[in-house]
C-alpha cells in the first residue's frame, strides 16, 4: 500500500512535426507550476524563467525562409549531469525516472544550472511578486518558491501524485493517458504525449520507438526521458534530388 507500488519511468514524446510554436505549453506550465511572472526587466537581462520554452530556429533566407520551433522542458536525463554536482543532494533521481528538485534543500549554488547542457534549470534571482489578488489563482498543489532557489520542470509531479492517489483510493492500476501534464493539455495539435516508458503498451513507449524518434545531444550520453520526433520535410522531389547528389 504505497504509492510507488510499481517502478515507473515517466517519459514524454514531443512531435516537432506537429509543433506550431504557439507557446500554449509555455503559459500553461507557468500557470500550473506557479512560475513567477517575467517582467520586462527579466526579459532585458536575460533572466526569464520558463520551465517549458519554445526555441525558434531560422532556416534559409527570404523567400525560402522558415522558422522552426522546438519545445524544450527538463529532459529528465537518466544520466543527469546536474545530479552529481549538487553539494546538498537537492537534486536527485527518483525511482519513477524523474529528476527531482527539492526546494527546501536547495541552497542556491547554481552548480546544477552550470552542469545542464540543455539549460532548463532556472534560478530565482528575485523574490517572486504576486499581487494580493493574483495569489488567488496560484496552484495550491505546488510550492511557491522564494528567492535563491533553483527550479525546473517537474513533469507536473503534483498531477502524477494526485492521479496515483486517486487510482489507489479506487483500488486500481493507473491507466495509460490518465495523467496528463499541463503542457500536454494545452497543446492544441497533440504534439506532446506523456506516460510510462516502462509500460510497453503505453502510447508514449510506442511513440518513443518510432522511426522518427531521437534525443537531444545524444553524444553526451545523458539518456533523456524526453524523446523528440523529427519534423518531416515535405518536398519529395527536392529530397530525391538531394539523395541522388549525395550518392555521387
Amino acid at each position: 500500500m504505497v504509492i510507488e507500488n510499481k517502478d515507473r519511468n515517466w517519459g514524454m514524446v514531443i512531435d516537432t512535426d506537429k509543433c506550431t510554436g504557439c507557446n500554449g505549453c509555455v503559459i500553461a506550465c507557468q500557470v500550473e507550476n506557479n512560475v513567477p511572472l517575467n517582467d520586462q526587466n527579466k526579459f532585458e537581462r536575460g533572466r526569464v524563467m520558463s520551465w517549458m520554452r519554445v526555441e525558434r530556429y531560422w532556416e534559409g533566407e527570404f523567400p525560402e525562409v522558415k522558422a522552426r520551433f522546438i519545445p524544450i522542458p527538463c529532459q529528465h536525463c537518466a544520466n543527469a549531469p546536474c545530479e552529481p554536482v549538487c553539494p546538498v543532494y537537492a537534486t536527485y533521481h527518483n525511482n519513477e525516472g524523474m529528476n527531482i528538485q527539492v526546494y527546501n534543500r536547495c541552497v542556491g549554488t547554481r552548480y546544477c544550472a552550470n552542469g545542464c547542457p540543455y539549460i532548463v534549470r532556472f534560478f530565482n534571482y528575485w523574490e517572486p511578486i504576486w499581487p494580493e489578488e493574483m495569489r488567488n489563482h496560484l496552484n495550491p498543489d505546488v510550492t511557491v518558491r522564494s528567492r535563491g532557489i533553483m527550479e525546473k520542470c517537474s513533469f507536473c509531479i503534483q498531477r502524477i501524485r494526485r492521479g496515483a492517489r486517486k487510482a489507489k483510493e479506487e483500488n486500481r492500476e493507473l491507466e495509460d493517458g490518465e495523467i496528463t501534464t499541463a503542457c500536454q493539455d494545452a497543446c492544441s495539435t497533440q504534439a506532446i504525449t506523456f506516460g510510462d516508458l516502462n509500460d510497453p503498451e503505453s502510447k508514449v513507449s510506442k511513440l518513443s520507438k518510432d522511426d522518427r524518434s531521437y534525443t537531444l545531444m545524444p553524444h553526451l550520453n545523458t539518456d533523456p526521458n524526453v524523446i523528440y520526433l523529427a519534423s518531416i520535410k515535405e518536398n519529395k522531389e527536392e529530397f530525391q534530388e538531394e539523395k541522388a547528389n549525395s550518392h555521387d
Binding site: I3, Y92, I100, V142, T143, S154, I157, R161
Partner: peptide, 9 residues
C-alpha cells in the same frame, strides 16, 4: 514512500 518528491514538490 521516502522519496523527497512524495511530499516536497
Amino acid at each position: 514512500p521516502t522519496d523527497c518528491a512524495a511530499c516536497h514538490h
